[in-house]
Design a protein around this nucleic acid. Structure first.
Length: 455
RNA sequence: GGCGACGUGGCGGAGUGGUUACGCAGCGGACUGCAAAUCCGUGGACACCGGUUCGAAUCCGGUCGUCGCCUCCA
């Protein structure tokens, strides 16, 4: 490859040329959702950011040479709380939430990862890993059924998040203070009471701490070492730091992930997204408000993935308009070949805003072939995602007749009838365009075939 | 307190040493029965103060401001 892919590696805090460990087996792991509630747009950001990276890797290294793993955390105290509150077992909560997660992410046009392992399927692997860490003296069990990782045994602890142990001690929380050798030691296993879900282990009935699942699943599916580990920037500490510690120490001190990628946070209308401020937006909220999947993608990718992103509805409306403009020039027949300018933008640390700029250029220069290919790659084509949204021929004829009727009305200066037809079509998602003597029509983003049939 | 990010025109948003990024909105015009869409044209920017340089929005130092992490979190 002539131009390498450059990615910002949080571990080195620099942009580095990406070189896979094995070109025939490029491996990426991304931290997925904890399934206790419907996905919010903050959850959607890493999904969409790493979806683009996944697509790019497949483009560069061929589809069958790339493996993308995104876990599902289905063991968690928030899940337990919800299950208890509803009087059901945790599977009821998690299964329903996973189904909705898939539905929402499919709507956004995100490709499914190759693997979506669940914590509940990996408890024995986690127990194995914890046992190994104990036998190697990186971890210690306590009398009350906890197992802790001893951070002082891992000299690189804090390297990813650029923290040092003595500073960290200052603000650490005091939970389990007595049982821990060091307040920073984190839990690998904890005992469950009878209400809580639990698994038998050498340390009694209990459940894993949440960091260990990623280490166990990544090892099982991707091996001790792999290329890219991603997630939201808030996961750097402690989650990813702890993953590095667990995995490195249980895998003969082999380096864990080569590249660490983190997407920035999301605000809504200038405020931090939080339930207490009541500005907590789910993907489903956007769907209900009739925004299209491509427009949500566009809005998410219009800001570079490492920058903070302020979610504003007016931007979403703008994205919708831009995509209608582009999609009306969509040429469906081409292969997905990325125009050079856009590929180059992506190769520079996934510069998606630059890519969008290039797409505007393609539009302005009437390079609709290239624009269509780019839209297909980015998932910006509504026609591509919702297969068969194109207008059936009988409907198309009907529209032609209505347009003709309207033009006759206009010639007869019956403008109220003409305007009525125009309004009816617009409500069904058809935009009428008069230019000179000619009248053409295009489909808008929200085409409603049912309404069209009734006209 | 520690670590880090950021501050670009009305809004959004790249760029990071030497030509207008660009999009949306605005303004002017064309077209139209009126609109919409489209097309043409157009103004407007790099938080502040110093320094380096022939030249800085871009590098260095400082000031101010915003935000994040350090606790579950994408």
């Amino acid at each position: 490859m002539k131009t390498p892919l450059f990615l910002y590696n949080s571990y080195s805090r620099t942009k580095e040329a990406f070189k896979p460990l094995d070109k025939k087996n490029v491996r990426m792991y991304v931290c997925g959702p904890t399934v206790y509630d419907r996905a919010h747009i903050g959850n959607a950001r890493p999904v969409l950011v790493f979806d683009i990276l996944f697509r790019l890797l497949r483009y560069l290294y061929k589809e069958h040479n790339v493996t993308y793993v995104r876990n599902i955390t289905d063991i968690d105290d928030k899940i337990n709380a919800k299950a208890i509150k509803r009087g059901v077992n945790i599977e009821k909560v998690t299964e329903a939430t996973i189904e909705l997660f898939h539905k929402d992410m499919d709507f956004l046009g995100a490709l499914r990862p190759n693997h979506e392992p669940r914590a509940t399927e990996y408890v024995s692997e986690m127990i194995d890993m914890i046992s190994k860490l104990i036998s190697l003296s990186f971890a210690y069990p306590t009398e009350d059924g906890h197992v802790f990782f001893e951070v002082a045994t891992f000299s690189d602890y804090g390297r990813l998040s650029n923290k040092n142990l003595s500073e960290l001690k200052e603000g650490v929380r005091i939970e389990n203070e007595n049982a821990k050798k060091n307040p920073l030691d984190f839990v690998l296993w904890k005992p469950s009471n009878l209400e809580e879900p639990g698994w038998e282990s050498p340390w009694g009935r209990g459940r894993p701490g949440w960091h260990i699942e990623c280490s166990a699943m990544a090892k099982d599916i991707l091996g001790d070492q792999f290329d890219i580990h991603g997630g939201g920037i808030d996961l750097i500490f402690p989650h990813h730091e702890n993953e590095i510690a667990q995995s490195t120490c249980s895998n003969n001190m082999k380096k864990f992930a080569n590249f660490w990628l983190h997407n920035g946070f999301l605000k809504i209308e200038g405020e931090k997204m939080s339930k207490s401020l009541n500005n907590f937006l789910t993907v489903y909220d956007l769907i209900k408000r009739d925004f299209s999947g491509p427009a949500i993608r566009f809005n998410m990718l219009a800001t570079h993935y490492r920058q903070p992103l302020d979610w504003k509805f007016e931007r979403l409306v703008e994205a919708e308009k831009t995509l209608i403009k582009w999609n009306n020039k969509f040429e469906p027949k081409n292969q997905t070949v990325l125009p050079m300018q856009i590929l180059n933008a992506l190769l520079d640390d996934l510069n998606t805003p630059q890519s969008i700029y290039e797409m505007h250029q393609l539009f302005n220069n009437e390079k609709f072939d290239d624009l269509s290919n780019a839209c297909r790659f980015f998932g910006f084509s509504s026609k591509d995602i919702k297969d068969g949204i194109s207008i059936p021929p009988d409907i198309s004829e009907k529209i032609d007749k209505l347009v003709e009727k309207r033009n006759n009305a206009r010639l007869a200066k019956n403008f109220s009838l003409a305007d009525e037809i125009r309004e009816d079509l617009l409500r069904a998602g058809i935009i009428i365009k008069d230019s000179g003597q000619e009248t053409t029509w295009e489909s808008g983003q929200k085409l409603e075939i049912k309404k069209l049939k009734k006209l």
